[in-house]
């Protein structure tokens, strides 16, 4: 799974310095996991995302952002709680979800928010 930095985030997801309003840069919908190494619930999410990355390969991009390493990105999204999961559909606004979601909730959100079956 790719770890995003400020630069790659701006290329692949949203260039928040150039655009005031949300403008998705990706060619397919994506899920972004804001996490940190010290966070137990974040580690619960990691294997679920690995599963999903395989199951939705070619349909959904799954990225991770280390909030300790990428503090500017975390601040840009007002992250105050991890894990936080950002669901970015094509052509619609993104939705943020807090806490370690079970796999079932990811599948539902991929269908409902990302419009991917």
């Amino acid at each position: 799974m790719e770890h995003l930095t400020k630069e790659t985030f701006q290329q692949k997801v949203f260039n928040y310095e150039a655009n005031k309003d949300w403008k998705f840069e990706g060619d397919k919908p994506c899920i972004i996991d804001f996490y940190a190494d010290w966070c137990g619930p974040c580690k619960q999410v990691a294997p679920v995302l690995e599963d999903l990355a395989k199951e939705y390969e070619g349909k959904v991009d799954i990225y991770k952002i280390d909030t300790e390493d990428q503090q500017e990105l975390a601040a840009a999204f007002g992250i105050r709680s991890i894990p936080s999961i950002l669901f970015c559909p094509k052509g619609d606004k993104p939705q943020m979800s807090m806490g370690a979601l079970p796999k079932e909730s990811f599948v539902t959100a991929i269908k409902d928010v990302l419009k991917v079956d």
Binding site: W38, C39, G40, R80, S81
Partner: peptide
């Protein structure tokens, strides 16, 4: 998640 937390070890930083 925007100022309310239930996990100090996750969010303290």
């Amino acid at each position: 998640g925007f100022g309310i937390s239930y996990c100090a070890t996750c969010d303290g930083d």
